[in-house]
Each structure stands twice: as structure tokens, then as C-alpha cells.
Design a protein around this nucleic acid. Structure first.
Lengths: 190, 190
DNA sequence: TGGGTCATGTAACCTGTTACATGATTAG
DNA sequence: CTAATCATGTAACAGGTTACATGACCCA
């Protein structure tokens, strides 16, 4: 998966592992987070597969760098990946796995649990409002406004997801709180 | 992750690997899909960790089975996992990775792409309406209505996600179709 | 006699995470 | 002097996927 993300970036222009790591952090982090170590490893297999070639560039005052350039075979592989249909609808969610079994904890513990989720989602939105995916940096790389459209779609997805998530969490909290009142003598009518 | 899901199920009652695989298929598949091979492997490590004990039961007319029973240490581990806070808000999405780079394909190809996503989501909803997560089977296992609440929450999440997803896809298609009309001479006003 | 259910797995592989490791330059 | 930025990775582990493998019984 990450392999093809890297290939996609290399297709915009030649760059180093270091560059790739930073683009992931700045512009793709909210739907994919890439470990430095994995990026360097994938670059090795990309090279081994002949999807990119590397060239060592000396710099002064800075360490040498290894610039990767996509090959025709790499572009073909990128296109193959984009065309292949294996995008299954489905939500592999570690969070739901936990929610599913929360009956083992007390009502109060679970209210705390969901309130923490709520806070995380607020924090996420706040962080996003402070530093949205870095438009300028990405525009430098991507240039073509037509291509930026797809980037915008992923951001819209992130925002819609975040909104839906918050609604779900609030709904869960409401249900738990109603149960709590029922337990402690039905104070809802007062 | 799956390890703890299995532990959660064993906590409801002793069962075999085969049972676990089927419960995952019937009731948890829409947020986690478990491979048979992985289930059997995880059961081995669960046993090795002392979280469950196994007992071979002979049957007539059917192959022998290995029934796993959770231990106190297993219950403690389940509780530890539920209590530990590592539920990061964030959406690791292979789909978004693909959407991000779709600028490499033509408008028409991309309209097809999103229409396929739309169909998948319709198919998912239809399948869910025909056979929603198997209430009866799950009720047999879970019994306690208080615990079933958390199961219901995961289903609500699935439905809300599915709705949001469809809206997002429709929104994407709309944007692409507008662009198409602009390209072919702005027929929107007619 | 052919397909479904019951029931068990192994082996190889791929992908992602965590921890560790180095070292020069530059700005505050 | 110290922290950040630039720039590279290795090693071990954890978790998930794919392919393969076996075998009896039951129902149509």
C-alpha cells in the first residue's frame, strides 16, 4: 500500500526518502501515517523492482542525499494499481473491536471511555483547523489543479468522517447517560 | 487485535476455533474480518500465554474438537486491553490513498471508479438489510441485554459510516460530472 | 456422486510498528 | 550550548493475507 503511495509521489517529481516522509506528514497524515523506517525500506524494494532509479547527490553543508526518479515501469505499476479493482467497502476498525466488548466494564467506566473519544475528536478538529493539510507545500509538488481536486476529495472525506464520528460518540454517551439515570432512580422527569 | 477479540468471545463462553470463525463471520464481519488460519494461530498464542486452556472433545459422526476456555489470567488480559488507552482517532484508509492519486486517470475513468464505489455501498446496504448481523445467534451467546447495547453501538457506527460514505461518493461524482460538462462545452445551462 | 458442514491446521509472505543508531550544520 | 533540521538507515517483532492440505459425515 505504502509502496504505491510513494510511487504516486515520485510520479510528481524526483525526491528523496526524507522528502517523502515529510510530504506524508504534511499532507497525507490524516489518512495514512508513514514510518520513516518503512519509507526507506519500501524505497529499496521499489528500486529492486525497477520502478525507480536512485542517484546520490552531494551537497555542501548538508549530508549527501539519494534522489529517486520513477521509471516507465514504475509509472506502469502505478497505473496498474489505480486501475485494479480491489477497493472493498468495509471498515476494519480496532475501535469497534473494543466497543463491542465494553460490556465487561461498568457504565461509569464506559462513559469515561466515550468522553475520551469525544475529546480526541475535538482535539483532532482543532489541530486540523490550526494546520490543515499543507496547501502550499502540496501545491508546489502537484501544480496541476485538476489533480488537486482528488486531494480535496480526501480532505472532504476526512471532515465528513470526523463529523459523523462525533455524532456517533455523542449518541453513545446519550444512551449511556439515560441508562445511568434509570439506574439511580429515573431522575429524567424532574 | 484479533487476539483480544477472540479473548472477548471466549469470555462469553468456551468454544472452538471453528465457532469463533463463524461468530466473526455472522456478527463482527462488517468491522473485522478474521481469517481461519489466523484464528487458529492466535488460539495457539493465547494458550501459550496462559489466557485459555484447551480440551479435546470427541464427538460421534463429527471430527474431534478442541474447546477453549478462558482463564483468570485471560480475563485479566481482556480487562487490561479494554482499559488501556490507545484508541487513536484517525483513519488509516487504503481507499483514500487511491483517491489521492487518481489525477493520473481520466475524468471518465474516475467517474467509473466512483460509480463502482457507489454500487459497492448500495450492495453493502442491501446485504445488511437482508441479513443484518445475526441477532439471534449473537443473543444466544451474549444473553445479558446490557452487553448487547455495545454491540448495537457498533452496528449504529456501521450504518452511520455507510450513510456518510455514500454522501461523500455522491458528492465526488457530482464534482466530476460538473467538470465533464465544462469540458464538453458547458451544457449545464440548457 | 457431488457439494455443504464440521473441524483442524501449516508455511510463506507482506506490511506495519518499535526501538535503536549516526552525524554534520545551523539558528537561537 | 542546545535543539532543530537534514539525511540516512538496520533489526526485531507483530499482525494480517494467501495458498495449500486433510478428512469424515450427511443430504439430495
Amino acid at each position: 500500500m505504502l509502496k504505491h503511495g510513494i510511487l504516486g509521489l515520485l510520479n510528481y517529481g524526483s525526491m528523496t526518502g526524507y522528502d517523502i516522509v515529510h510530504i506524508f506528514k504534511d499532507s497525507l497524515s490524516y489518512f495514512w501515517n508513514a514510518q520513516t523506517s518503512q519509507v526507506y525500506r519500501e524505497l529499496q524494494t521499489i528500486k529492486k523492482n525497477g520502478w525507480a532509479a536512485d542517484e546520490t547527490v552531494e551537497q555542501d553543508g548538508k549530508p549527501d542525499k539519494k534522489v529517486f526518479t520513477i521509471t516507465d515501469s514504475g509509472r506502469a505499476e502505478l497505473k496498474r494499481w489505480l486501475t485494479e479493482d480491489n477497493v472493498e467497502f468495509g471498515i476494519r476498525s480496532p475501535l469497534m473491536m473494543k466497543v463491542f466488548f465494553r460490556g465487561e466494564c461498568s457504565l461509569d467506566e464506559n462513559i469515561d471511555f466515550f468522553e475520551k473519544l469525544q475529546n480526541d475528536s475535538y482535539a483532532f478538529d482543532y489541530k486540523m483547523s490550526l494546520s490543515p493539510p499543507d496547501t502550499k507545500k502540496y501545491a508546489e509538488i502537484i501544480k496541476d489543479p485538476m489533480k488537486a481536486l482528488y486531494w480535496k476529495m480526501t480532505i472532504e472525506y476526512g471532515m465528513m468522517y470526523s463529523k459523523m464520528y462525533r455524532q456517533w460518540v455523542e449518541n453513545c454517551i446519550r444512551q449511556l447517560e439515560e441508562l445511568k439515570y434509570e439506574d439511580t432512580g429515573d431522575q429524567r422527569k424532574s
